[in-house]
Amino acid sequence: MEQEQQLREQLVKMMRGGIAFRPREELLEGITLADAGKKVESLPYTIWQLLDHLRFAQHDILDFCRNPDYQEPTWPDDYWPKETAPKNKESLQHTINALAHDLDEMVKLVQDKSNDLFAPIPQGNGQTLLREAILVAEHNAYHLGEVVVLRRLINSF
């Protein structure tokens, strides 16, 4: 049981960041509406598109983990926003807040000892909560790294 608790704690640390890189809150701090929509030559996405993709994908993983009636969105069309910039400051803040909220919800699933980390998720085809938590951590780390690079390229970090 001690090992399982250690595993749960490490999963939470991975999802929240701050071990190998700074936490999400720090990486996203100070992103302006103008910066979110700036295009960088030779890159196919803006900070906004990365953030909204992260929001959608993380919510999709959370929904998959807890919704017995889960319906898989269409890849890649549903996962990537077409708009290069948020409509307004409220849209940007909503996305950043949704990232935090859904990550908190995923953390709760992992911390809840009544959820078996190794049991297949009924609406899946072999995926487990352990796998989905690692997926959230890995996916978020990958795209947050891209956000940091974009912020550096547009001189906002």
Rank of each mutant, 00 (worst) to 15 (best):
residue 3 Q to E: 05
residue 4 E to M: 07
residue 6 Q to V: 05
residue 7 L to D: 08
residue 7 L to Y: 03
residue 14 M to D: 14
residue 15 M to D: 12
residue 19 I to N: 15
residue 19 I to T: 15
residue 19 I to S: 13
residue 20 A to Y: 14
residue 23 P to A: 05
residue 27 L to S: 12
residue 27 L to V: 15
residue 29 E to D: 09
residue 29 E to F: 05
residue 30 G to L: 08
residue 31 I to C: 01
residue 32 T to A: 00
residue 32 T to R: 00
residue 34 A to Y: 02
residue 34 A to K: 01
residue 34 A to D: 09
residue 38 K to A: 02
residue 41 E to M: 08
residue 42 S to K: 14
residue 43 L to K: 06
residue 44 P to L: 00
residue 49 Q to S: 07
residue 50 L to R: 10
residue 50 L to V: 05
residue 50 L to K: 04
residue 51 L to C: 05
residue 52 D to E: 13
residue 56 F to I: 08
residue 61 I to R: 11
residue 62 L to F: 15
residue 63 D to T: 15
residue 67 N to G: 09
residue 68 P to R: 02
residue 72 E to W: 13
residue 72 E to Q: 15
residue 73 P to M: 01
residue 74 T to R: 15
residue 74 T to Y: 11
residue 75 W to P: 01
residue 75 W to K: 01
residue 76 P to E: 09
residue 79 Y to I: 00
residue 81 P to G: 03
residue 82 K to H: 08
residue 83 E to H: 12
residue 84 T to P: 12
residue 86 P to E: 06
residue 87 K to H: 11
residue 91 S to W: 12
residue 91 S to I: 06
residue 92 L to C: 00
residue 95 T to P: 14
residue 96 I to A: 01
residue 99 L to C: 03
residue 100 A to W: 01
residue 101 H to I: 11
residue 102 D to Q: 12
residue 103 L to G: 08
residue 104 D to I: 02
residue 104 D to W: 12
residue 104 D to V: 04
residue 104 D to H: 06
residue 109 L to E: 14
residue 109 L to I: 13
residue 111 Q to F: 02
residue 113 K to W: 06
residue 115 N to E: 11
residue 116 D to G: 11
residue 117 L to K: 13
residue 119 A to M: 14
residue 120 P to M: 02
residue 120 P to K: 09
residue 121 I to L: 11
residue 123 Q to M: 07
residue 123 Q to T: 03
residue 124 G to H: 15
residue 125 N to M: 12
residue 126 G to Q: 01
residue 131 R to V: 01
residue 132 E to F: 06
residue 133 A to R: 03
residue 134 I to E: 11
residue 135 L to W: 15
residue 137 A to R: 10
residue 138 E to A: 14
residue 138 E to I: 05
residue 140 N to M: 09
residue 141 A to Q: 09
residue 141 A to W: 03
residue 142 Y to V: 04
residue 142 Y to P: 01
residue 143 H to Y: 09
residue 143 H to T: 04
residue 144 L to K: 13
residue 147 V to D: 04
residue 147 V to E: 00
residue 149 V to D: 03
